[in-house]
């Protein structure tokens, strides 16, 4: 009775299965494999259980960069989300200008990460950089290479410049999807501009903001190239974020077991925080 008509159809699933296996499962298992062994060379390896995890969790380097990383991601979201919404709100709704705005906004997104780092590295230099030179000329002692505060500000500014567009574009599409009837109804109800934003636009943006915030959190939490090019993690360790710590560990010190354990912990943190953000935001959306 319950015969399946054509079993060959299962082969259609094979490519996806292989792709997932090679892109996600196999590398992840490799990392898991590393994380439970002490590896000296190709033949000398010992099973150490959860030793690496214990050690990594006690490592002050990890603690420091984890805290730095959280502060950084938090600042990124705090600045980019409201700024992105503002930009989207200010954009013209239709016509040539809106097309122009879209193109201008898209430009930073198209520039490769390391180029962004390089641009800002030059831009901020006190001797030849446009920003650095004028800041110093105005009497502000600005030096991202020497002052950790300046370095932080520059990395943040760079990230804001690079990624606010993403939030703005997402919000812009979200705003465009709101039917005119809503604005008309609100105007008839004599709603103020703020009330329109608070009760119509913001609620309707909730789903795109959820995607935007998750993307920006995950991306900023894994930031590597730009600060590496700009400051190299310095001055001192002030702009060394998690992924740079990890790279130093894995490649610089060839500490594969420790790096493997670190990677997994890193991965779990991102997963956990993303889940928390997602749950919190969908809960707000349900409006209970």
């Amino acid at each position: 009775m319950n015969k399946v008509e054509n079993n060959k159809a299962w082969f259609l699933v094979l490519p996806v299965f292989l792709l997932v296996a090679f892109s996600a499962v196999v590398p992840l298992m490799t990392v898991v494999n590393y994380s439970v062994q002490d590896i000296f060379d190709a033949t000398n390896r010992y099973f150490v259980g959860v030793e690496w995890f214990k050690e990594v969790l006690r490592d002050p380097r990890l603690h420091d960069s984890l805290i730095r990383q959280f502060i950084f991601s938090f600042c990124v979201l705090l600045i980019e989300v409201p700024l992105g919404i503002c930009v989207a709100l200010m954009m013209p709704k239709e016509g040539r200008w809106s097309a122009l705005c879209l193109i201008l906004l898209a430009i930073p997104l198209l520039i490769p990460w390391n180029v962004v780092g390089t641009i800002w590295q030059i831009f901020g230099r006190a001797d030849i950089g446009l920003m650095g030179y004028y800041l110093n000329a105005m009497g502000i002692d600005y030096n991202y290479a020497g002052n950790s505060g300046d370095a932080w500000a520059t990395v943040l500014l760079m990230d804001v410049w690079h990624w606010t567009s993403l939030i703005a574009l997402l919000c812009y599409s979200g705003l465009r999807a709101i039917p005119d009837a809503y604005y008309q109804a609100a105007r008839i109800d004599r709603a103020s501009g703020w009330a329109i934003f608070r009760y119509i636009q913001l609620p309707k943006l909730q789903s795109v903001l959820l995607i935007g915030i998750l993307l920006r959190f995950m991306d900023s939490f894994m930031i590597y190239t730009e600060p590496f090019v700009l400051t190299g993690g310095g001055p001192g360790n002030s702009t060394t974020f998690l992924s740079q710590t990890l790279t130093t560990m894995a490649i610089g010190q060839f500490d594969l077991g420790r790096a493997g354990a670190f990677s997994l912990i890193y991965f779990l943190i991102i997963l956990l925080v993303s889940w928390l953000l997602y749950t919190a935001m969908t809960h707000v959306e349900k409006g209970e």
Binding site: A181, Y199, I200, L202, P203, G287
Partner: peptide
């Protein structure tokens, strides 16, 4: 309107 316009939140 054709479809209800209300303040969701």
């Amino acid at each position: 309107f054709q479809f209800p316009v209300i303040y969701d939140t």
